[in-house]
Amino acid sequence: MSCIDEHSYLTLCNLLSDQIALSLPPDKVYLAEARLQNLARQHTHGDINALIEKASTVADDALRTELVEAMAINETYFFRDPILSQSFLDTMVPALLEKRRRDKTLRIWSAACSTGQEAYSVAMLLDQHFPQLKEWEVTLIASDFSQSALNKAQQGCYGLNEMNRGLPARNMALYFEQQGLDWQAKPAIRERISFQKINLVREWPDSLPVFDIVLLRNVLLYFSMEDRQRVLARVRKHTANDGYLLLGSTESLEKTAGFVPAIPGNHRPFYQPA
């Protein structure tokens, strides 16, 4: 395996920061080497330094995209962290059912959905626990910067290991069907989610509405402080004043972020606009 030299690693860090605001620490050279190996074999005879150079200098968007996607962190699984179910079942949806009872609309955004498990978890939670929402106009948007992750999310097709991680067997039987060795979400659940390509640190679509619930989980921790503040300010504009923001279970926000804990005294990871 070729080793990444200092100059190339710096170039890679700058590229990732520019493209997806991923702040790669100096001690992750080994990670970059492991993740870029295959791509280097395909494009630059195994030379990772040449791959980074090519992706950063040549007007080859496709290669740049491939490199960035190879470095992206796509870790996700169904019903990740108990706070997801707890906050939906105990607080957010019951409160919103009351607050939105006149216009009967509910808008939810899974803002860095990766391969989609979070969005499907939400769709299953709503279906199982809030049957009254069948009469409502429920919008569930799942977005990610990575087209390959989105393609997988949209297909809703998962392998055994992904199915084994976090998905209750009852949900597997109810909402998925076998496709050879894989399992695919049934159309009835897939059709409830609208998948969109959105890079959080680039332009957002004008059509993106204001949401009642924004899930921005395990994303901000990879951003620099500056990018984090910038993204949060935009998320605030797309969160209803009485809406909610849910982060990853180990994440928390600074007081200046424009959000306050949804449950007073409990400083993470569940917030409302200040």
Binding site: Y77, L160, N161, M163, N164, R165, G166, A169, M172
Partner: peptide, 13 residues
């Protein structure tokens, strides 16, 4: 219900 083969993480999960 856990399907074989599985990872130790899947079992813990």
């Amino acid at each position: 219900y856990l399907m074989k083969p599985f990872s130790s993480e899947a079992l813990a999960c």
